[in-house]
Amino acid sequence: MNVLFDNFWALLGIKLLLIVLVVMTTALVVIYAELKLGAHFQHRIGPYFAGGRWGWAQPLADALKFLQKEDIIPAAADRVVFKAAPMVSLMAYFAVVVIIPFSPRLVVQDLDVGIFYALAAGSLGTLGVLMAGWSSANKYSLMGGLRAAAQLIAYELPLVLAVVGVVIQAGTMSMVGIVEAQAEPAFHLGSVGIPLPFVLQGQLIGFIIFMIAMLAELSRTPFDLPMAESELVMGYLTEYSGLRFTMFFLAEYAGIFVMSALVSTLFLGGYFLPGLPSNVFGPVILMGKTSVIIFLIIWFRWTWPRVREDQLQGFAWRWLVPLALANLAVTATLKVVF
């Protein structure tokens, strides 16, 4: 067995298998959670029959149904780009999941440039959306794709600048390093050191900015303009059907999981919880924190109306970018002074 783990390629294969299982399972669970929570937010019961109880097998049944559906590519579409778009979308989130630490050692690859790389790779997802919008040769799709691109552009900046605050405080871009920095005592009560997550160490504004910008990056309500059903049919997905549509769907929910795990790691202490050994409970702790964030995202979706495109752009450039820069300046000054 040890020979297997000393071999780089064998170990890589095992990591890949584990991560695929985790991401796929989580995506299915999040889809189910959205169906069920959304139903209860609206005083409905939601899926009920699939799987025998509570409709737990509904996402699987949906996937099976989509598998049998005809794959229609419009005659006018740019076929190559049309086929590549869902690949790019899913690729982005698989690339990001590499750096998420589930425990001090249970991490696929703890890159030195960790979070910087994650931000770069994460924005590729929107490239997939833009490709889908453009290649469909459909007016609604094109509009949706352009909206997605404009949205990414506007909210990428607050997102990145909010992370810089965390990097300043942690003094590293490695994800494990960032969690370890939050595990160190922030202050001492008598002889007891109290560790605090960054959200309680002066990064509250950064956390809020990151959450807002994350919703926009994921095209979630109130920023779901790229596929606003009431104006654009289904936005960039209008021409997609069958399994290609499912893949975008999967990418969306994998994205929700990955971004929530990023927030938990950056601002909420990741796999660390005072009093519990993170080597053993790390994955459970991280998943717990991630679930809270995912619940919030679903809650927002069923509560808030959609913003208008000019409001969306104005909010980002007029408020979030200056606020994020101010947050950055204050954090940096405090770091240098103390």
Binding site: L12, K15, L16, I19, V20, F66, L67, Q68, K69, E70, D71, K83, P86, M87, V88, L90, M91, A92, Y93, F94, A95, V97, V98, V108, Q109, L111, Y117, A121, G242, L243, R244, T246, M247
Partner: peptide, 24 residues
């Protein structure tokens, strides 16, 4: 590692769509 994970995202879509083409 990073490249393999990213490539897997694309491979997954290709395999899934290929499998569906046998059924649909």
């Amino acid at each position: 590692t990073v490249a393999v994970f990213a490539a897997f995202g694309a491979v997954l879509v290709a395999v899934a769509v290929g499998a569906a083409s046998l059924l649909r």
